[in-house]
């Protein structure tokens, strides 16, 4: 057995150790293998004992889409041609956001039991939660294509814009997930309240109903909602066949970048307290 090397400089010195937005980023890089392992675990275990396996990722939004189409097609059909495609393109965005932020909360709570015993950069749990949601989002693009084919909806070249849309949505969801999960560490009932908030938020965002139903008087209020812009980043290229204009793109970009920065700063400012609290 080889003898261990000696360090003349300290590996860890509490006097100069501070978790900052930058140091946490560096630690995240060191622990990238853990992020991959956590994503792998969440994807594998979610389906391991089910007959249909990964197919559920596709069947889940498909089922919701079928129900909503069945219920609402009489109301909205005249307003929206290819209503199944309309609803599915919005649901993908919403499911990603809801799933990603919820998994951030439960991930940090689960990780909390480990954070009390060993050192792990606590942001790995939020980042891997969004990673898992991202894998699911990409898998669920398959049923979207199938529905478009079945419904006879046109495929536009503007769909090549989607990677940028996904990037914006991911940044926004990660930032929000970090923020809400670090609040939930201190107050467990925030996780419960968040479910109610999510439901309200869904109905305040034109996911199920067409935007044209919103009266002009209320539209400015709808535009305060960041998810309004995120959904638009997907609907425009998939559904309307054009890439967003600058007036549509910039609010989405500002929300995505702003939320990511705010969420990261808030999360890292609380990191040293987690081991005392979770």
């Amino acid at each position: 057995m080889t003898l261990l090397a000696t360090h003349s400089k300290p590996v860890y010195d509490s006097a100069s150790y501070r978790v900052s937005a930058i140091s946490e980023l560096r630690e995240l890089g060191k622990y990238r293998y853990l992020i991959g392992q956590l994503i792998r675990r969440d994807i594998l275990t979610r389906y391991k004992r089910s007959v249909l396996g990964v197919a559920w990722t596709m069947l889940n939004p498909l089922g919701t889409m079928l129900i909503l189409t069945f219920v609402f097609s009489n109301f909205f059909k005249s307003a929206v041609p290819h209503y199944p495609v309309y609803i599915l393109s919005g649901l993908l965005v919403w499911n990603f956001f809801a799933q990603g932020t919820n998994a951030s909360i439960s991930g940090l709570v689960w990780g909390g039991s480990l954070l009390k015993r060993i050192y792990i950069p606590s942001s790995v749990f939020g980042v891997s939660a969004i990673g898992t949601a991202l894998v699911n989002l990409i898998i669920s693009l398959i049923p979207l294509v199938v529905v478009m084919l079945v419904d006879g909806a046109p495929f536009y070249l503007s769909m090549l814009f989607l990677p940028i849309s996904i990037l914006l949505l991911t940044a926004f969801t990660l930032g929000f997930g970090l923020f809400i999960s670090s609040v939930a560490v201190f107050f467990p009932d925030v996780a419960e309240m968040y479910q109610v908030l999510l439901t309200a938020w869904l109905y305040l965002t034109p996911v199920i109903y067409p935007e044209s139903l919103i009266s002009a008087k209320w539209l400015p209020f709808y535009k305060i909602n960041p998810m309004y812009w995120m959904v638009k980043m997907f609907r425009l290229p998939i559904f309307e066949g054009r890439i967003p204009s600058w007036q549509e793109f910039l609010p989405a970009l500002a929300w995505a970048a702003g939320m990511l920065v705010v969420g990261w700063l808030y999360f890292t400012s609380k990191t040293e307290e987690y081991a005392y609290r979770v």
Binding site: K9, V11, Y12, D13, I118
Partner: peptide, 22 residues
């Protein structure tokens, strides 16, 4: 916990000259 970098001490100083395997 203080030694394995899990908790930062409220006051005082902890210095470690090696990698820790908890």
């Amino acid at each position: 916990k203080v030694i394995s970098k899990v908790l930062k001490p409220t006051t005082g100083r902890v210095v470690i000259y090696g990698k820790i395997a908890p």
